[in-house]
Design a protein around this nucleic acid. Structure first.
Lengths: 331, 331
DNA sequence: TTGAAAGCGCTAACAT
DNA sequence: ATGTTAGCGCTTTCAA
């Protein structure tokens, strides 16, 4: 690889003259300037990034973004937001753990060795201890969980409120027997959503029924089937996410139930592509994921610069009504 | 930031002794070793990545992955594949152009200034000149287009064959009047698919009808609607991708046509989540995207090392039959 | 077992 | 206008 000294040698000038020309600083005679540029181009010279970073005071910021699954639209949107906030002069190092928690924790542990200036952790399953440890070395932004640590800021969605809204919406549409598919203990957000559901049910003096399921279509399908076979009378379903809702809809249809006439359904996440494609279009709770990614990156930059005023940033979800929840209300 | 010399000062040893301890090389007395480790931990020492990269011969490879839209499952899967191939000891710098070609070209042009050792370009809309220029500085892997350049290798899917398979499948299922939604001139792959469609139609002495559309649901919907309103007799539709197919299905249903009984439909890309959720489940042409990403990264590493034997790697698509194309065949 | 010193490629302050 | 030089933080060879 060509470097400054080689160009200097070939053009009979000093290294610093070459540096000046290539950076457009200082004054250099036209003749030398042209010659230097010519040789540099001919050699295919590219400045050495690491040498630059060392010698310069102003660095290019590098943020490590750790996600469990880049194929999941949620994390893809998050990534998009982070990229947006990074603009021209920061780099995003994407680290996908392939849904493997062990790999994820290793990635987080190693992040600091890669010239990364701060990390954004896209999910809440990583251990508190790890977050505490890594944050002594490097600024951290985490999602969905609050930490009382110096070098950490949290981005949280008010999941409880979102779930509350969803449930209340079903109630206002005339549902009495509303079940919730979700609430496994594995994910913090899952628990929060279950709580919001319960709150709305209790407020309306209705009996909450929670069927614990994970986060994909098949568990939604199975969970719904289980409930139906148990003989529950159901006229509304609040699902912990859209995929689960899609599975549930499938199970409901198989039993000959009409949506929303017999059973109203609502999901969570508002994955547009999915929600609009299902039949009937699925109502859902929208979280501003992309914006959350942007804010995460901006807060991380503040943290890196040392101006960490904010410790926690709460986003409020929004109800998006489509057909699946619009049961005719008897007034 | 703590550095070696600070630790050295605090422990009254030389920098090189500290370096040895921290890297587990050479022999150092137990006493000093412990002390050094203790101080390093206390100071929250993290080695300076750039300094390391400069001093060491063996580098951590850094690959720049440029995609037009990380939210598109295609590119998300591609990214996943690249990440997989990178494993523990290479970094992926993700650069999303937000579907902005200008931004994309800028990203590519600047990649070499960021310590990136090679780039993977995830789409074929970038100009040939740019690929040629950048490849004089840095190894490049491109998708979907072949270049006769030294420092470039191409990964291509046999789009034509995929389209041919899809069309032939419809023909074998008894369709006679098959239209194609796709074939805009903007994308190379789009043209290739249209060609494959035409080949299959000609082979069966059927008349090809191409309705040019882009790549999302709404254009599929509009395109299909246009054709129907023009009064075409249609019993089969081959769409340039799954989203277009979903739009087309919507338009067909609105006209009261049954799928697949009246009209058989097939897409391209085999976005599993989408295909399985649509009603009826959508047949499609599968491309092994993740694997393509893995191969791209591996070939890039070879290119970086200088062992570029392969200039081009062709993947063969696969037909995935679901219900949407299974018209009863009169035998 | 320990340390001095060279060097990685670059920038920038300071001569000349 | 041009060059000299001192770092940036680390690894590594070589000498003590």
């Amino acid at each position: 690889m060509a470097n400054l000294s080689e160009i200097a040698r070939l053009t009979n000038v000093s290294i610093s003259t070459v540096s000046k020309v290539l950076n457009g600083k200082g004054r250099v005679s036209e003749a030398k300037r042209k010659e230097i540029l010519r040789v540099a181009r001919q050699l295919g010279y590219t400045p050495n990034y690491h040498a630059r970073s060392m010698a310069r005071k102003s660095k290019i910021l590098t943020v490590g973004l750790i996600v469990p699954d880049i194929i999941n639209p949620f994390f893809a949107s998050l990534t998009r937001g982070v990229e947006k906030a990074c603009g021209e002069d920061s780099l995003v190092i994407l680290m996908d753990s392939f849904r493997n928690l062990e790999r994820e924790e290793k990635l987080i542990k190693n992040a600091r060795f890669f010239g990364i200036d701060g990390i954004i952790i896209g999910n809440s399953r990583v251990s508190d201890d790890l977050v505490e440890e890594i944050s002594t070395y490097i600024p951290v932004v985490v999602f969905d969980k609050f930490y009382e640590l110096d070098n950490v800021v949290s981005i949280v969605l008010d999941n409880r409120y979102g779930a509350y809204m969803a449930t209340k919406h079903l109630i206002e549409n005339g549902c009495k027997n509303i079940v919730h598919l979700g609430g496994t203990h594995e994910l913090y957000v899952s628990l929060e959503r279950a709580r919001g559901y319960e709150a709305a049910m209790n407020e309306a003096s209705l009996k909450p029924v929670v069927e614990p399921v994970g986060y994909n279509e098949s568990v939604g399908y199975e969970g719904m089937k289980r409930l139906l076979e148990l003989g529950f009378q159901i006229d509304g379903v609040f699902c912990m996410n859209d995929l689960v809702a899609i599975g549930a809809i499938k199970a409901l249809k198989e039993k000959g139930l009409r949506i929303p006439e017999d059973v109203a359904v609502i999901g969570f996440d508002n994955d547009k592509e999915l929600c609009e494609i299902v039949d009937p279009p699925l109502s859902s709770i929208h979280q501003p994921v992309e914006e959350m990614g942007e804010v995460a990156a901006k807060l991380l930059f503040e943290l890196i610069k040392g101006n960490s005023k904010i410790k926690r940033y709460v986003f409020t979800p929004r109800l998006v009504v489509r057909q699946s929840s619009l049961k005719k209300v008897k007034t």
